[in-house]
């Protein structure tokens, strides 16, 4: 048994270095960062399907190995606990994306439509299918329960107007990973003036999401 599990470490490292130079440990860190960012950002962020797929691969690989192990083995128990923890982060991440898709579906699809070739998609193929289906189902439902009983001139509903957009002006908490200079802070009221701040590495801030949104995708700041 210990062979089956001891081999893991080296196996995984090889697998990984072929497609990416990340170690499995770094991969898990990436997943956790993506999870927290997604949890706290008001809008749907870029999909990280690469990370998700790699993590899934690691999990299935490890689970396959555990299948071969006798019951009651001390190491297997530890591995199972770790798998459960990673699986929790992974599903929580995917769940928070689905919740946002449900909340903002017309806008998400609109953004997907206006996306230019070569530009990275916000949605993974599965999420795209989910969003489209959700849109169709909502529309059918609204028609069936209400719209078809309305006067003819009121029978259409513009989903883009009916569903609120993500509020990019919300405040977020963030931690700075790479020093940033001259971040413009817009004033709250007309009698205040705008000013710039420098974000020092390791410092934590509370400010509007809109100001720092580009820094999240570049990985310079982490939402907390």
């Amino acid at each position: 048994m210990s062979d089956a599990l001891s081999d893991d470490g080296s196996d995984i490292n090889q697998d990984d270095s072929q497609e990416d130079t990340m170690t499995p440990a770094e991969l898990i860190v990436k997943l956790e960062e993506a999870w927290l960012n997604e949890k706290f950002s008001p809008e749907l962020l870029e999909n990280k399907s690469e990370v998700v797929e790699c993590v899934m691969e690691q999990l299935t690989h490890m689970e396959a190995n555990l299948q071969r192990v006798k019951k009651g083995d001390a190491k297997a128990g530890i591995h199972r606990m770790e798998i459960d923890r990673i699986r929790f982060v992974l599903s929580s991440y995917l769940r928070s994306r689905l919740q946002k898709i449900e909340k903002f579906f017309p806008h998400v699809l609109e953004r997907e439509k206006s996306r230019e070739d070569g530009e990275a998609s916000l949605l993974s193929p599965e999420e795209f299918a989910f969003a489209k289906e959700y849109y169709a189902n909502t529309e059918t439902y609204l028609k069936a329960v209400a719209l078809k009983r309305m006067p003819p001139n009121l029978q259409t509903v513009d989903m883009l107007k009916a569903v609120p957009e993500p509020c990019l002006d919300s405040f977020v908490f963030l931690r700075v990973k790479e020093r940033q200079e001259n971040i413009l802070v817009e004033p709250e009221t007309d009698d205040q003036r705008e000013y710039v701040v420098d974000l020092e590495e390791g410092s934590q801030h509370l400010m509007r999401y809109r100001t720092i949104a580009p820094l999240i995708s570049s990985g310079a700041v982490q939402l907390i």
Partner: peptide, 22 residues
């Protein structure tokens, strides 16, 4: 009516207790 605050030395749990309400 500030638009920016620096929160060094605050821990995640502390931020979390005021997050939703704030």
């Amino acid at each position: 009516m500030e638009a920016h605050a620096k929160l060094d030395n605050l821990t995640l749990m502390e931020i979390n207790t005021v997050r939703v309400f704030l």
